[in-house]
């Protein structure tokens, strides 16, 4: 799965950073597959006391896809920005599936282990995803900031680098997005 991605990703990253939106579209499936594969692999190893780390996964995916060739720090931040979106998709997909039905099979093991969610369950994660879609409609940048921070674990300085806006703006957008999202979720959420 990785062989088609390695090397290619570095070039795509460059294109994307230079403004080629299509490059993003080409990268996402590759990153998605890699993250999913890594998640499964980690879950199957069943090391005692081992919990799945989203940041670790993203980091590992980065190393596998981009390799250890010298790469600018900026690329790393951008890669994680993409991986955040992908992590969001994976997690929300899992959550939606889990809500639909408790299925058996390999998936189920994964789901159990992925359940360490601060939003306290699948319903909340799905609600957050919906709210994020709404927020992005009102303020696209705020949607991206939440995605990178919450799903990708990017720090404010890194997000500031990826988006090319000031640190103060990131702080303001993040603080107010939390309020907006919370209000949206409590309005629409289950009783």
């Amino acid at each position: 799965m990785t062989e088609d991605g390695t090397g290619q990703i570095t070039a795509l990253l460059q294109h994307w950073i230079q403004g080629d939106e299509k490059a993003l579209g080409a990268m996402v499936p590759v990153v998605y597959k890699e993250l999913q594969r890594l998640a499964r692999q980690h879950l199957q190893s069943e090391r005692p006391g081992h919990t799945l780390q989203s940041t670790a996964l993203v980091h590992e995916a980065f190393l596998r896809l981009v390799g250890s060739e010298p790469i600018e720090l900026q690329n790393r931040a951008h890669f994680i920005a993409i991986a955040s979106r992908v992590m969001r998709q994976i997690l929300v997909d899992y959550a939606r599936n889990r809500r639909a039905s408790k299925r058996d099979g390999g998936h189920r093991i994964a789901l159990e282990d992925l359940a360490e969610l601060p939003v306290d369950g699948d319903a909340e994660l799905v609600a957050l995803d919906d709210a994020l879609h709404e927020l992005s409609r009102v303020d696209e940048r705020q949607g991206r900031i939440v995605e990178m921070k919450f799903f990708g674990g990017l720090s404010a300085p890194e997000i500031s680098q990826v988006l090319g806006v000031s640190r103060a703006t990131i702080d303001r957008d993040w603080a107010t997005a939390r309020v907006w999202l919370y209000r949206h979720i409590s309005k629409t959420a289950l009783p």
Binding site: T51, L52, Q53, S54, T55, A56, L57, V58, H59, I80, M87, L91, L114, E116, L117, P118, V119, L125, F150, F151, G153
Partner: peptide, 9 residues
């Protein structure tokens, strides 16, 4: 983070 984070990032 939605998954536990050990700060390896």
């Amino acid at each position: 983070s939605p998954l536990a984070d050990d700060g390896m990032g």
